[in-house]
């Protein structure tokens, strides 16, 4: 017992010194994050901010879902497809999720090839990622069309709380916009990789700066983030 009480002050002092070391590292000369380029740091901080945007959207959705007094439509019935004579719940969403997660795999391969400066394979993998993304958005468009034909509107739907349609169109629409922007971004960067801009140090049209292969990884950060957000939307909107 005594031994423990005597050890505590020493432990507290060493812990304090440990924190001082953490602060000293973080506040060190020139750069807080060593070996992190400006572009990558900027993307990470943007994604942190964007996390708050999606967080607010999802929290708002959960709040209206709990505050409305009308029953919430059952997602596994609403998002079912009639295949082979029976209703398969969530089948489309499952395929969409599988495609999007797979696109993260091709994206990771693109990053790997980019750091090997393998121009052709990098561009090919980025195009594959973009194709997966476009397929995802296309299936989302199909899903929207189907629901709209069944009478779902932002202000009403045949099955229950009007907030169901509002939240659905708003959140999936905002996420789909992110995916679309990601696809465009991927195509632009893939073109630059294919053309060899990062080998010839060609300057950007708008910024007049030389690009580097690292931009593939930065694009990948954004892409993985959009995938990760989808997992939360999937869990909180479709599975709840």
């Amino acid at each position: 017992m005594e031994g423990i009480t005597q050890a505590r002050p020493m432990e507290a002092i060493s812990r304090f010194q440990g924190w001082c070391g953490v602060v000293a590292d973080w506040s060190s000369d020139q750069r807080a994050f060593k070996n992190v380029s400006w572009g990558k740091a900027m993307m990470w901080i943007f994604l942190l901010s964007d996390t708050f945007v999606f967080g607010c959207f999802l929290l708002s959705y959960m709040t209206v879902r709990m505050s409305t007094i009308v029953p919430w439509p059952n997602p596994s019935e609403v998002f079912a497809l009639h295949i082979g004579g029976q209703d398969v719940p969530l089948i489309l969403i499952a395929i969409m999720t599988f495609i999007l997660i797979s696109s993260s795999g091709t994206m990771a391969m693109a990053v790997n090839f980019a750091y090997r400066r393998d121009r052709v394979r990098t561009a090919a993998m980025m195009l594959a990622t973009a194709a997966f993304g476009a397929a995802f958005v296309g299936m989302q468009a199909f899903e929207w069309t189907k629901l709209i034909q069944e009478g779902v509107r932002p202000w009403e739907n045949p099955w229950g709380a009007p907030q169901f349609g509002s939240s659905f169109f708003m959140i999936t629409g905002f996420h789909g916009t992110h995916v679309t922007i990601g696809v465009i971004f991927l195509l632009i960067i893939a073109r630059k990789v294919w053309r060899g801009d990062f080998d010839t140090e060609r300057r950007g049209f708008f910024t007049s700066r030389k690009g580097r292969y690292e931009i593939v990884e930065i694009t990948g950060l954004y892409w993985h983030f959009v995938d990760l957000v989808w997992v939360f939307i999937f869990a909180l909107f479709y599975l709840w």
């Binding site: 901010s49 945007v53 209206v64 932002p154 907030q163 509002s166």
Partner: peptide, 24 residues
Amino acid sequence: LLAFPALFVSAVMLLLDRLLGTSF
């Protein structure tokens, strides 16, 4: 960067309430 997202989201939702007739 962490606080403006909340205003962004509330502005979008209020705009939807006004323009599309949603009831957030």
